[in-house]
């Protein structure tokens, strides 16, 4: 019962974040919404695992948390430098 309520609350929250992603004036707002939706999806996977009585779903939640983080950083790096290749901002520091 409480799992269903929590899942519905998470879904409402995801819908609100999605609205921000649609109307967001800059692309950074959209990335922020995507990141927030990813975090909420991790929560949703965990709650759904308990709702279905199969806590094995937590492995998926763990992997999703990592993929969400890497994905956000990759998109931001692409926006900042225009490419995913090469070193970060100050190439003189390393080497």
């Amino acid at each position: 019962m409480i799992y269903a309520i929590t899942a519905i609350a998470i879904l409402i929250s995801i819908a609100l974040a999605l609205a921000r992603a649609i109307i967001g004036p800059t692309s950074y707002d959209r990335i922020l919404s995507a990141n927030a939706i990813g975090t909420k999806t991790v929560l949703l996977i965990g709650v759904m695992g308990f709702l279905a009585g199969r806590p094995d779903f937590l492995d998926l939640a763990l992997v999703y948390a990592l993929v969400n983080f890497i994905g956000t950083l990759a998109v931001l790096k692409y926006f900042k430098f225009g490419t995913l290749r090469g070193t970060l901002s100050k190439p003189a520091d390393n080497s």
Binding site: A9, I12, S13, I14, L16, A17, S33, A36
Partner: peptide, 10 residues
């Protein structure tokens, strides 16, 4: 708290 977060984003 999650619903407040959604409102805050909006």
């Amino acid at each position: 708290l999650l619903i407040i977060t959604g409102f805050g984003l909006l």
